[in-house]
Simulated assay, not measured.
Amino acid sequence: MSFKSKWQKTKWLLKHRNLRRHIPRTVPFNRKNLRMMLSTYPIVYFKPTGGTGGFGIIRIKKITSGYQTKPQTVKSPSPTLGHLHKKLSRFSGRKAYLLQQGISLAKTKGRPFDIRVMVQKTNKGKWISTAMCTKIGKPDKIATNYHQGGRLGYLHQTLVGAGYKIKSILRKEAALKRLGVTVGKRFDSNRRGFRELGLDVALDTEGKLWILEVNTRPAIYPWKHLKGRKLYRRIRTAARQYGRVT
């Protein structure tokens, strides 16, 4: 089952007391909210409510001479908030967009990364966090996605590269698994029919976990690129239970 509205999914998560603290500040795009977000956070992301693969995302940064936007790799200045709002409105057209608090991503060997948690439902209706990997971004890109030139990595290796010790890594892994299962149950309580979810989770420089997005039709094929394909096979085995693969 696919459900594209990022805003609706965010509202579901915000109603859960334990999940709320893991959600970056997110609001619909309009001039009032743009002013509020940029007066509160040094970096804000402008995201389509229905986009996938990191496409259509713009990073907005407040600078001395106004504001700086960065869609992919090219930076563009806006001297005033009004100029910025017009630019973003032209870019969005009639499509709905969100503004999201920017998270300062942890880095592994100098490269920013976030974490993908694959959560799947068994034929007995139980949610299980079946696999995790990291998406390691290019230094000049604003998104870590595979489609944006990022590469996949193993969680333990990536966290070692970020300076974490084994005990801390195991605690983070357990927390991510719990987070995935909790989100699965939360989605079930709002709408039936979900059998798989892909959580994009940021680990910030202070060690906190943030849910950036929940994908209801997460891609499986990029997992093939992880050496050994162990996680890919695990995901496919779980997916056979609900008929996504044969």
Rank of each mutant, 00 (worst) to 15 (best):
H83I: 13
D204W: 00
N123V: 09
R116T: 10
M132S: 14
Y45D: 04
Q72S: 07
Q241E: 05
T10C: 13
M132P: 11
L170V: 14
T134Y: 05
N190M: 11
A174M: 06
I103K: 05
I60Y: 09
R31A: 15
G243T: 11
K75L: 13
L34I: 07
L209G: 03
S104Y: 02
F29E: 04
F187R: 06
Q8S: 08
Q68M: 12
A143R: 06
K107N: 10
K121M: 01
F3W: 12
E196K: 05
I23A: 12
Y146N: 02
P42L: 10
N215I: 14
G228A: 04
D114G: 08
P48I: 15
F46E: 13
I142W: 01
K47Q: 07
R25I: 03
E173G: 13
G184P: 01
R151M: 14
R90C: 14
N30W: 08
T158R: 01
P218W: 15
F3M: 14
V74Y: 04
F194G: 02
K126E: 03
P218V: 12
G243Q: 09
A143V: 10
R191L: 12
N18C: 05
K124I: 05
K6Y: 10
G184R: 04
K141R: 10
T64V: 15
L105W: 00
G82H: 02
Q157Y: 00
Y97W: 02
D204M: 06
K208E: 09
P28S: 09
W127T: 15
H225T: 02
Y45W: 01
M36R: 11
V183M: 03
A96W: 02
G51A: 11
Y41D: 14
Y97H: 06
G184T: 12
K95V: 14
L38T: 15
H22W: 06
G110N: 03
R17F: 01
R186P: 10
R116W: 01
R178E: 05
G125D: 00
L199I: 10
K230T: 10
G110A: 03
R186F: 02
A106S: 14
S78W: 00
F91D: 10
A174R: 10
T237L: 03
I103M: 04
S104W: 07
R229H: 03
G184S: 06
I169W: 01
D114T: 03
L38Y: 08
I169Q: 06
K75R: 08
P139E: 15
A175G: 00
A239T: 11
I220D: 05
T182C: 05
R31W: 08
